[in-house]
Amino acid sequence: MTRVVEPTVAEPPRRDMFSNARIVGGQFFLSGMHAGGPSGPGAAADTHAQAVEAFRRMRALTEACGATVDDIVVLRIYLTDIDDRSAVGRARSAVFSGDFPCSTLVEVSALVEPGLTVEVEAQGFLPTADHPGRPFTAQ
């Protein structure tokens, strides 16, 4: 197993609690990405803006693993208000095209930080010789 880091996606403050990204065999796994930070969601107050930032972080970590968003096969989206699904859908459609990943979208009562409304978790397969990717950044 390899932990993967990406400079534009902050690592958890206690690195012994979880990893943002891991590679295991030919697969990569991403923890839930959201728009939160040390001072909360900041400028990303509405769900669409938060989703855009969550997908940006997801893409950055996917690429740090040596893959692209086309290599993501499973996507899980958590919303604090299911009525925000169209706002998240707009952000999602700017990231994915063609064959979309298998996806689950659920409403939850809260996310890890106050003010967060959306979190995105993903997993996929690393590119093969038929679809070469970039080398990953291990730590």
Rank of each mutant, 00 (worst) to 15 (best):
G26H: 06
V120R: 02
P41C: 08
V108M: 13
Q139S: 11
G42F: 03
L75I: 07
A67P: 06
P7T: 12
F100I: 07
R22V: 14
F96T: 06
I82W: 11
S109P: 12
A91D: 00
R90Q: 07
R92H: 09
P7C: 09
D99V: 15
A110G: 04
L116E: 06
S103Y: 09
G25V: 07
S31V: 01
A51V: 14
D99F: 10
G36W: 02
L75Y: 11
T80G: 09
L116G: 01
S31H: 01
A54W: 11
E6N: 07
A94E: 13
D84F: 10
D81L: 11
E119D: 15
A138G: 14
I82S: 03
I72K: 02
L75S: 10
T117I: 09
A87P: 04
Q50W: 04
E121M: 14
A64T: 09
S103T: 15
M33W: 01
I77L: 10
A21E: 00
P132H: 09
V108P: 08
P13N: 05
L126H: 04
P7Y: 15
R90A: 02
D130P: 04
A51Y: 12
S19D: 00
I82A: 11
A10Y: 11
V73C: 07
T68Q: 08
L61Q: 12
G32C: 00
E121A: 12
T2F: 15
A45F: 15
P101N: 08
F136H: 13
G98C: 13
L126G: 05
V118W: 08
S103Q: 14
P127A: 13
R15T: 06
P132C: 13
G40L: 02
V95M: 09
A64L: 04
T137Q: 03
T62H: 12
P7K: 14
V9F: 06
V95W: 06
N20P: 08
M33P: 05
E119M: 14
G98P: 10
S31M: 05
S19K: 00
P13E: 10
L75V: 09
Y78K: 03
A10T: 14
